[in-house]
Amino acid sequence: MLTFTLRRLSLFLFTMLVLTLISFSLSFLFPGDTVINHSGQINATATELAQLNEAYQMDKSIFTQYGAYLTHILNGDLGQSMASQSPISNEVLELLPATIELSLVALLIAMLVGIPLGFIAAINHNKASDNAILSFAMLGYSIPVFWLGLLAILFFSIGLGWLPSAGKISLLFEIEFVTGIQFIDILLSESPYKWQAFSNASSHIILPACVIALAPATIFIRLSRAAMIEVLAASYIRAAKAKGLSFQQIIFRHAIRNALIQIIRHVGLQFANLVTLAMVTEVIFSWPGIGRWLIESISQRDYTAIQSGLLVLSCFIFIVHILTDFIYAALNPLARGNHHGS
């Protein structure tokens, strides 16, 4: 396990090095002054500019400059947003939890719907229900997320009036910012309207989370179907059958557990996909998350925000990958011996 951990850590370090290198070079590639792109201080006076040049060591060689840039990032200084002139680290800390919350709920929905459906399809392999589930998965995977989002708003918000179309929660509720994960903040708050707020927040998250969940759910269907078919064909299942275990016993005791291990590895991969979908969905549903912020930064040509936002987001996704790798390794001892990484 120790070598496994060390290998992951070194992979993390090198990937981060490459990522920071890319984000560092973006400052040179974007139009405008490099040091202003680094820091985001568009209204800097001459003395402030001199200080910035000093801080980012712009007069030294490019390697020293990169070192200075790294030091700034490691100190948590991501520069300030050109558009709002507030520190990017603050904005990210405020917005990232909202995206994580939305993605987690979507992931949960995708798993709760996708995996059982995939198992059902595998158990009924080559029967009508299998085909129905597979065609649903194909259909769901092909629908573009922004179109689905608009349809969902049109149908559920405007047509039926069941669910709200924008935001995290009705603006009437004042929830103090503690963790940024809204449901936790609501439970921590001392508002007399706690439960009203909770139900309101739940109704706000349903539509965007379901829209995001659709594509990953279809992937989970196919993954779990394939994993289950493979497991059901394995010799220990045949042995179990031969021992006279009932069908339910085979499925619940042996098949599901072993099929799930295969799927968990892909959860991490799907999370990256999910965050990408969440970025588009956040724009449609006015969800105050990092994706909407990043897309707005692009349209406002807020280079510092784009550069630092991308760095933070990719770093976050990478951490998620490593975490799922650890979970997988903990569940499946065979994986720890894998000498070639993943």
Binding site: S170, L172, P192, Y193, Q196, S199, S202
Partner: peptide, 20 residues
Amino acid sequence: SILTGCNEGNKLSLSERSII
């Protein structure tokens, strides 16, 4: 039960006393 609201005791909900 969460979605339908557990606010039976509170007759006038917050939204009825506010305007957006």
